[in-house]
Design a protein around this nucleic acid. Structure first.
Length: 454
RNA sequence: GGGCAGGUGGCAGAGAGGUUAUGCGCGGGACUGCAGAUCCCGUUUACUCGGGUUCGACUCCCGACCUGCCCUCCA
């Protein structure tokens, strides 16, 4: 199996990937807390891990991907209260919409998509274990993790407890023994959703659900745990503390974090009003373009989102589509393509080096440029190659099977060609414009007409 | 104040101790009823600054400056 290198946030180094179980990968990706519609930052995380997963599968790993939905949390409760609706129902509504948006971005669903509210038993068991191990304490219906007991606290985000104390601004709460302690369980206040527990009715704290669900489905040590870079602290730091306090084992071997999406040099945030929703973007741009946009950048770097980048991605998409269409029209029966193997090697090597999709895309685009001039057996090979690679990238047009629709389009094009020969350009242009309106773009080339979907 | 990630050509954005990234844009040519696409050529000494290591650094080391993020909720 091909050697993969992964940059690990904890060690700050690129390390050779060695799974816990040979040939298998257990990866857990932090999904959203569902109190609003998905934005393009969520999309970046989902698309990147989708591609990483597909790549790992492509090189023959057996991947178990788990991606959670946090459907109980203070933010959910607050928002639902503002609107006077049921918090859990609201969370589930946004969870469904999130999954729909991601489906529309061609993100393959994780093998398991666990919800926090369906795993109360695991969460409670885990908290009990942490208390039993002496790392957490009960306080008036709440349970807190005692940060000072966990000596390695801060190892992921590379900060020291003393420094964080100096930085002040920690929430004041007289139930906590020390300011940095964080809640594993919160007693329910009047009107809040609750589950019964040994500490009374309440709900889980923010971080515990990920520890409980990831270990439940993958095991006590995960190969890969990922999410957005803003989760490094405190979310992932706290997950490490809880999980390792419970099991005494290393929680995660490779921590991966996707850089944040920015707009005009600022992080997207509702207060600044620069949040772009996936659903709004999809009204204007096809999913392929959005995927290409993100594939065209290194996942760990911050991404500067703007319409120019997106329209550039759209142009690339059209080029790729056009080449794909060209290959389909000229491909002969027996595929044979030497250069394809060469490019596959380049692309896989780039991806194996910490999932460098940008470099992979540069090879891919170079290949596309060459493929435009191919024909016959080579074109057939190139076609096959593009479809193979699409198992990873998923940026080619879908529903491209040659059915009735395609035959009708060919017929229309034949008519147009005839009209052009007779210099009936009014009719020829009318046909072209009509097809364009339906999303079929055509081009007259030396070798005849070619068409593709936009 | 502390931590982290960066600073590359008109723009986006990889990479690497000495060899063309890639794409977009722009200019010229070919082709063309028009449009688009495609093909060829060009866009000359791009790599924040100052030191150091080296035969040689944009690439390694040290320092400075700048930007963003995290340190409160966030993918």
């Amino acid at each position: 199996m091909r050697t993969v290198y992964i940059h690990d946030t904890l060690s700050g180094e690129k390390k050779e990937f060695k799974p816990v179980h040979e040939g298998r990968v257990g990866m857990y990706v932090c999904g959203p807390t569902t109190y609003d519609y998905a934005h393009i930052g969520h999309a970046r995380v989902a698309i990147m891990y989708d591609v990483f997963r597909r790549f790992l599968e492509y090189i023959d790993y057996d991947v178990l991907m788990v991606s959670n939905i946090t459907d109980i949390d203070d933010k959910i409760i607050n928002k639902a209260n503002e609107r006077g609706i049921d918090p859990i129902e609201m969370a589930h509504y946004y969870a469904r919409e999130y999954l729909k948006d991601m489906d529309n971005l061609r993100v393959r669903r994780a093998n398991i998509i666990p919800k926090a509210t369906r795993h109360m038993d695991e969460i409670i068991e885990l908290i009990k274990k942490i208390i039993a191990n002496g790392y957490a304490y009960e306080s008036k219906g709440d349970v807190y993790f005692s940060v000072s007991k966990f000596k390695e606290y801060g190892k992921l985000s590379h900060r020291r407890v003393e420094e964080m104390m100096a930085g002040a601004r920690v929430e004041v709460n007289e139930k906590k023994r020390e300011p940095l302690d964080f809640a594993l369980w919160k007693g329910a206040k009047e009107g809040e959703p609750w589950w019964s527990s040994p500490w009374g009715p309440g709900r889980p704290g923010w971080h515990i659900e990920c520890s409980a669900m990831s270990m439940r489905y993958i095991g006590e040590t995960l190969d890969i745990h990922g999410g957005g870079a803003d989760l490094i602290f405190p979310h992932h730091e706290n997950e490490i503390a809880q999980s390792e306090a419970a099991t005494g084992k290393r929680f995660v071997n490779y921590w991966m974090h996707v850089g944040l999406v920015r707009f005009e040099k600022e992080k997207m945030s509702k207060s600044i009003g620069n949040v772009f929703l996936v659903r709004d973007l999809l009204k204007k741009y096809p999913p392929e373009a959005i995927r290409i946009m993100y594939l065209n950048a290194h996942y760990r770097k911050p991404y500067e989102f703007n319409e120019q980048n997106l329209s550039e991605a759209l142009i690339l998409m059209e080029k790729i589509n056009a080449t794909y269409a060209h290959l389909r029209s000229v491909a002969s029966e027996e595929p044979e393509c030497e250069i394809c193997n060469e490019y596959e090697e380049k692309i896989l090597n780039a991806l194996a080096d910490d999932f460098n999709t940008r470099e992979a895309m540069s090879h891919y685009l170079e290949f596309i440029a060459k493929a435009r001039n191919m024909s016959g057996a080579e074109a057939a090979g190139a076609l096959q190659f593009m479809e193979k690679m699409d198992g990873i990238f998923d940026i080619l047009p879908h529903n491209s099977n040659a059915g009735l629709e395609e035959r009708l389009i060919d017929l229309v094009l034949e008519i147009r060609t005839k009209m052009r020969k007779e210099k009936r350009y009014d009719i020829a242009d009318w046909l072209r414009d009509s097809l364009a309106e339906m999303g079929i773009k055509i081009e007259d080339t030396k070798d005849g007409v070619r068409w593709y979907r936009v």
